[in-house]
Amino acid sequence: MIDLLLRLLEVSFWSGIAALGFGIIFNVPKKTIFTIFLLGSSAGLIKFFLLYFDCHVALSSLVAATFVGFISIPIAHKIHHPPVVFSIPAVIPMIPGYFAYETILSIMNFVFIETDEGKRLMLIDAIFANGFQMIYILLSLTIGVSLPMLILNKSSVKSLK
């Protein structure tokens, strides 16, 4: 149990660092850096907590992204920056980059290298599984982050004061 908690904390810390790194590439305002770290690590904590209980990765991402989407509204009012500036870097570590290039790698192996019938079938399975998993995770992240706006039927958080 303690091991699990420590591992979760470690993973969420590094998720925060990953979010922060992306924030720096996107040249985020200096005031949002700490927020991005906190949001990134809490999103990581939620996602990996759910994954540990065998929740599907797309559903876990949806829950984590929804959390980021909702918590972003009060934060936006507090630090006076539009939510996208810190909510997008916070969910970027959950972007299914691994699934994305795994799909392409499987396609390349299928086309250029593999000749064995059985392994080619496994590659087709990998292409579909990774490719569609990527699309579903992307959808989860987008919907999660924009869910508060969709529910509240508003286009700007300023009008929610």
Binding site: W14, I17, A18, L20, G21, I24, I25, N27, P93
Partner: peptide, 23 residues
């Protein structure tokens, strides 16, 4: 301005190290 190049370099490399830990 943007962040200095060295800050970007270190931050991005740390982010990648973070990904490595996550996986």
């Amino acid at each position: 301005g943007r962040y200095p190049k060295i800050v970007v370099l270190v931050a991005v490399s740390l982010a990648v190290a973070g990904f490595c830990n996550i996986f």
